[in-house]
């Protein structure tokens, strides 16, 4: 079997934090933001990571680009260990893995023009490039993401949110990366503009053979753009599989709840849907439930769920779910 582009095994990220009750000098407790996450990403493949706020999806992304240290596990980039790489080698790989952030305006330096912003990664990663060549690459990239040539000297505040996100995408792609990690890239945009950016990312991924990691809370957005979906809850992977399978035949009770809660913009369907709503709130990540982390809100939880952490089970076709009690599909509601 050929080596995947990115191979993540049992990745964990831990933050030391002081609880609300503790004394200032008390020993910090570990907050396990990401625990034992494993997945493979092939070249040109798009993986969606879905979870609610506090599920650890952003932390996972940051661990992969190296802005937070991983506590355990490994992430291999074409066979090389990303997490324990010396800084110089890591710098070389930064070029291969680029990131697009959630807040399009906040991610742009307000004192730089669009052209300067898009050129900056080129100056860092290809310092010997001639100025003429830099200008050509920037112009080419701007056209590719749907910006006009006369916008090159404008400042971020002169652009709309959707255009700012196009600048962010151009900046990420100008160094020709192999993987782009997008953290909620469309959640701050209006619906009509969101669709433009989703289509743009999909086209670019296909045309340039890019691998995408697409982090979002909106299952419908992820399903539109991704080949596979990884569902996250309280730092752990609940389900992983082909996007269509995960949405149509969710195996994990949490995924079923997510699918059931996502509104469908059609009154005829929406009124007929009567679905059980998840009870309770996300438990504190400082004191996660023993065993299965979802059991405190799970409609099919039983006493044995508290005893051991359920391993990922294969349901065929690379569709994995971490629940030993989920029967055949059909417990939840799979629309369409």
């Amino acid at each position: 079997m050929s080596e995947p582009l990115l191979r993540v095994r049992d990745l964990s990220v831990t933050f030391p934090v002081r609880g609300r009750e503790g004394w200032p000098w008390a020993r910090p407790r570990p907050l396990r933001a990401v625990r034992d996450v494993s997945f493979d990403l092939a070249a040109g493949e798009s993986l969606g990571i879905v979870g609610e706020s506090g599920s650890g999806k952003t932390t996972l992304a940051r661990a992969l680009i190296g802005t937070v240290p991983a506590a355990a596990g490994e992430a291999r980039w074409q066979g090389e260990d990303l997490l324990r790489m010396p800084p110089a080698a890591r710098h070389r790989h930064r070029r291969d893995i680029q990131m697009v952030f959630q807040d399009p305006l906040a991610a742009l330096d307000p004192r730089m023009t669009a052209g300067e912003i898009i050129a900056e990664p080129l100056l860092v990663h290809e310092p010997r490039l001639a100025r003429r060549e830099v200008r050509a690459r920037v112009a080419q990239m701007m056209e590719r993401v749907g910006l006009l040539p006369n916008q090159v000297n404008r400042y971020p505040h002169e652009f709309s949110g959707g255009q700012c996100q196009r600048i962010n995408i151009a900046r990420a792609l100008v160094v020709r990366p192999r993987l782009v990690v997008c953290d909620e890239p469309v959640s701050a945009l209006d619906v009509s503009v969101q669709a433009q950016v989703i289509n743009l990312l999909g086209d670019l991924g296909r045309d340039l053979g890019l691998a995408l990691i697409f982090i979002a809370h909106d299952l419908a957005v992820v399903k539109h753009i991704c080949d596979r979906i990884l569902v996250f809850y309280l730092g752990r992977a609940m389900e992983l599989g082909a996007a269509r399978d995960v949405v149509r035949e969710p195996r994990h009770p949490y995924t079923r709840a997510l699918v059931a809660a996502a509104p469908i913009p059609d009154p005829a369907i929406e009124r007929g849907r009567r679905t059980a709503v998840l009870e309770g709130d996300l438990p504190s990540p400082l004191a996660p439930p023993s065993g299965c982390v979802f059991r405190t809100r799970c409609p099919i939880a039983r006493p044995s769920c508290a005893a051991a952490i359920p391993p990922m089970q294969d349901f065929g076709g690379g569709h994995l779910a971490a629940c030993p009690h989920t029967g055949q599909a059909g417990h939840g509601e799979a629309p369409g």
Partner: peptide
């Protein structure tokens, strides 16, 4: 323009 869970069109 709204992405829908119950539809498969890949282009919005």
């Amino acid at each position: 323009a709204v992405p829908r869970l119950d539809r498969d069109d890949s282009r919005l």
